[in-house]
Amino acid sequence: MTQLDEHKKIRVGVLALQGAFSEHIILLNTLPQVSEAVAVRNAQEIAQVDALVIPGGESTTMALIAERSGFWPALQEFVQTRPTWGTCAGMILLSEAVTSGGTLKGDQKLLGGLGISIKRNAFGTQKESFEAGLHVEGLDNAERLFPGVFIRAPVIDEILKPEDVQVVAKLERDYGKTPKGTIVAVRRGHLLGSAFHPELTRDNRMHLFFVKMAQDWIASQSK
């Protein structure tokens, strides 16, 4: 028995207000550790999942839809204590502050919790979007590069809580004006954030990484 088999399967929700949520659901459903991956659009649906993925899309759009449909408080409460992974726009929502690249600065609502500040659209506009391999800490077969898909991607500008934020991935080389070593994925306790889109690859190792992290977290809370 591996450690993984001792954990209960989990039900994972994917926030489905706007963006690439079905792509996440497809990859999560390939994992034996996941009993079911489902779309989450309101407070009733979020109450029925063990962990949440906030997908890529437009962070301003997702925040405005959640707020206007009265879902924001339940979402905020969930991410405070339950395992949540934000990719791209999702990571922006889990950050404490957007330092540049946002125009709705005052109004952009953030869930917070990851202990980081974000630079939006760090690489430029869409024509600068790219794919490049990354070393991601803690993945299975870690020697195999993970395909990083960066689309109008943000980067982590600053780690605000260095005592408990763990760097998960950095850029392997300079891309345009963004230097090698720039942080593109972090973990803090039950939260995970990545600037790139694992849902736009067929490689499910990041999804497995998150699901195991969520299972460990849930097991540690029930002790």
């Binding site: 489905a16 207000l17 706007q18 963006g19 690439a20 949520f21 079905s22 792509e23 890529g56 899309g57 437009e58 759009t61 791209c88 726009a89 869409q126 024509k127 600068e128 979007s129 790219f130 794919e131 490049a132 391999g133 990354l134 195999r144 590069l145 993970f146 395909p147 990083g148 898909v149 960066f150 689309i151 109008r152 392997e172 080389r173 891309y175 889109h197 736009l200 490689d203």
Partner: peptide, 23 residues
Amino acid sequence: ASEVPEVASFNVKAGLAQMLKGG
């Protein structure tokens, strides 16, 4: 995956449209 970046691949072009879905 390669460390050498592939800029503006069809995957990132079609990928931005995937990010716009539901919008």
